[in-house]
Structure formats: structure tokens, C-alpha cells
């Protein structure tokens, strides 16, 4: 696969591109397409007129109502996953110019400022393709079940407030809790591999997103009650020791979650837990 964060433009380049982008130009969207599981992939290119504020989503919408390639061939609208279009739901993640990111926040002016510039869109490679740019990320939600990513409350009836918390601790938990299960960290991780057989999900590397959730819930006063279960879920095959410390995850996280800190913190907890368990003789 292409480098997960190749071709990333820094903030200055993006700003400069936006300044010189010409309104009324057209760009080329080169899209990797696939009709369904087991079907071969192919590339199709589309010429799309853009205006200031255009993003990958508005270009894909244009193609949906004008599904004609640059060769003049009529084709089908491109299939892709999307939801909020403001980078909080995580749905529209794809690989753009070789780098994984949300397509809604990918502004054309910043990435393709000149007439005829090309943007390349590919589906994420670590998840099975459903069709075109839409992939199946069920394994990520499975991982959240695997590590019991919830606070085990005593039911929903009124039992008074939750635990008091310092603002510093709240800010720390909030930062971890912004994870939208988009999968960028997994796409970029050399240790995380595509696994279409659900039977093998529990023994293949679980990845940064779920490890971060373990830290989040182990930091909550009531959430702690399941701490041992969560750590043990990360101690076998596919657990935290599979992390190769490439640190790609933290570089591609769109929410700036301190994923490597979380991996280190959970790593320490599992070590302590292993010792404790050993001396307790369990």
C-alpha cells in the first residue's frame, strides 16, 4: 500500500494553495472503484468543476448527478460512506492522495489549487471493501465489545450524580473520548492487518483506537471496576504487545488524540496487572 501519510501538505502549503486557487477551474478526481467483495478493482477519472469551499464530498455529489468519466464513458455514481460532513461522525474516511483522512474536511482549494490538478481517492486498505470507497469497519465496533468499553452503571434509574472530577482530569478524559471510530490510526499502522474472518478478530492486533478506549474507561471511577477484564483482553495474542511502536497512529488521528501516550499508559497497566496476578497466584 501507499504510505499512510505520504503527500501530507503542511498548514502553510495548504494556506498558500488556498490563496492562489482559481475559482471556476476544473480538477480531476481519480477514483479506485470496485463493484463488490471479490470483484476486481479499476480506476476511473472524472472532471469536476469546483468553487471556493468545494470539498471531496461536493465533488462526489457532482459525480453522482453527472456520472461520466473523462473518457466520456457513462458509468455509475461512486459509492461512499458519509454522515455529518463536519468531521465528528468518522464515516467518510478514505485514502486521499495516499493519506488516510476524512473526505469532508478535505478542501479542494488546499489540495488541488490549479486547473487540471488530480486528487486520488482510494478505499481504506485495512477493511474489506463493500463497494467503491465504502468499507466495512464492523471489526472496530467488535473491538469495543472485546475491551468492554463502557461504564458498568447500576441501571438507568435515578441514583444521584456521578463521581466528582477535577477539571484537569475531565479535560484529559474528554480528549480521549473524542475518538469517532474512523479507523485512520489503524489504516496507518503497519501492525494492523486486514482480517475479513471475524473468527480471527480476537487474535489479530486490536490497534490504537481500542487501546485508547481501555485507558479512557480505566480512568473513570466507576469504569475502573472492569479494569482487570479490559487489561486481560489486551494481554493475549493481538493485544498490546503487538504494537510495533511505529507511532503512525498519532500522526494521522484527526482529533489529535494522544494515542501513543495511551498505548504507553495501558502498556504499563498491563505489566502491573500481570505482576499482581502472578503474585496473587491467579
Amino acid at each position: 500500500m501507499s504510505g499512510a501519510y505520504a503527500h501530507e501538505y503542511n498548514a502553510e502549503t495548504r494556506r498558500a494553495n488556498r490563496q492562489r486557487a482559481k475559482p471556476g477551474r476544473s480538477i480531476i478526481l481519480k477514483i479506485k472503484r470496485c463493484d463488490g467483495p471479490g470483484k476486481p478493482s479499476r480506476w476511473e477519472s472524472f472532471k469536476v468543476p469546483v468553487e471556493p469551499g468545494s470539498n471531496v464530498i461536493s465533488c462526489l455529489k457532482y459525480i453522482a448527478s453527472h456520472p461520466v468519466t473523462t473518457d466520456g464513458k457513462r458509468t455509475t455514481p461512486v459509492v461512499w460512506d458519509s454522515g455529518c460532513l463536519e468531521e465528528v461522525c468518522g464515516a467518510c474516511t478514505m485514502v486521499i492522495n495516499g493519506r488516510v483522512r476524512q473526505s469532508c474536511s478535505c478542501l479542494i482549494d488546499e489540495y488541488a489549487p490549479d486547473e487540471g490538478d488530480t486528487l486520488t481517492l482510494e478505499p481504506m486498505s485495512k477493511f474489506p471493501v463493500i463497494r467503491d470507497l465504502w468499507v466495512d469497519r464492523e471489526r472496530m465496533f467488535h473491538a469495543l465489545r472485546r475491551v468492554k468499553a463502557w461504564v458498568p452503571i447500576d441501571g438507568t434509574y435515578n441514583l444521584g450524580p456521578g463521581p466528582k472530577e477535577s477539571p484537569e482530569h475531565q479535560q484529559m478524559r474528554y480528549a480521549l473520548s473524542e475518538c469517532m471510530t474512523c479507523g485512520c490510526c489503524l489504516e496507518a499502522c503497519p501492525q494492523y492487518l486486514q482480517e475479513s474472518d471475524p473468527e480471527k478478530w480476537d487474535t489479530s492486533f486490536i490497534g490504537a483506537a481500542a487501546i485508547n478506549q481501555v485507558r479512557l474507561f480505566n480512568e473513570h471511577k466507576t469504569g475502573k471496576r472492569l479494569k482487570a477484564d479490559r487489561l486481560e483482553a489486551l494481554m493475549g495474542p493481538g493485544g498490546i504487545t503487538d504494537c510495533g511502536n511505529a507511532q503512525n497512529c498519532v500522526k494521522v488521528c484527526p482529533k489529535g488524540i494522544p494515542l501513543t501516550e495511551s498505548i504507553a499508559a495501558v502498556g504499563r497497566s498491563t505489566t502491573v496487572h500481570a505482576f499482581t496476578r502472578f503474585f496473587k497466584g491467579r
Partner: peptide
Amino acid sequence: DLLDRMGVPFN
């Protein structure tokens, strides 16, 4: 209160 118990990081 309930959301607080569920772990919502209220400011």
C-alpha cells in the same frame, strides 16, 4: 445525573 454516571465528560 444519569449521563454523569455513564461517564460523560461534562466540563
